[in-house]
Amino acid sequence: MQTFNNITGNRLVIAILVCIFIIYNIIIYKGTQPLTAEKLSDDALAGQLLYQKNNCTACHQLYGLGGYLGPDLTNIISTKGKGPEYVKAFLNSGIKSMPRFHFSEKQKDAIVAYLREVDKTGHFPDYNARMHPTGWVEIKTKSE
């Protein structure tokens, strides 16, 4: 029977992994560029809260993450033919499966501010991404 009785061995491996993990977490929480590139304004933070409270995420994605019943909103502000007014028109429209919200003008502005600042952080989908033979895909941030 090939048993692995090396209890200390197992504990050692776990200890090493946990140490790596702690250092890794600290680096991520401190956040280096471009992680911290865009600081959200107060308006945008208020918009983010509205976005969360109404669970827009269930149907919409940012950077492709979220539910799939509606379109991605990452770059809706900067897309040709869309933009702030376009977004506002949708909010209380109750179109298709989208609930009919009752946002005030101020709340609409906050949501737009949030989406505008999200838009500034990058592109999704990134049509100019560069493919590498290793399978890696290089993306561009907006500041580059």
Binding site: Q2, T3, F4, N5, N10, V13, I14, L17, I20, F21, Y24, T32, Q33, P34, L35, A37, Y63, G64, L65, T121, G122, F124, P125, D126, A129, V137, I139, K140, T141, K142
Partner: peptide
Amino acid sequence: RGKKTFFFYFLGLTNLMLGWAHHTYFVPMA
């Protein structure tokens, strides 16, 4: 208790800790 079993456990743990960013390849982070 086999060696291989433990190997896969450690591999799983490494993935748990460090593998998450395959959900965010296109988010402009480090």
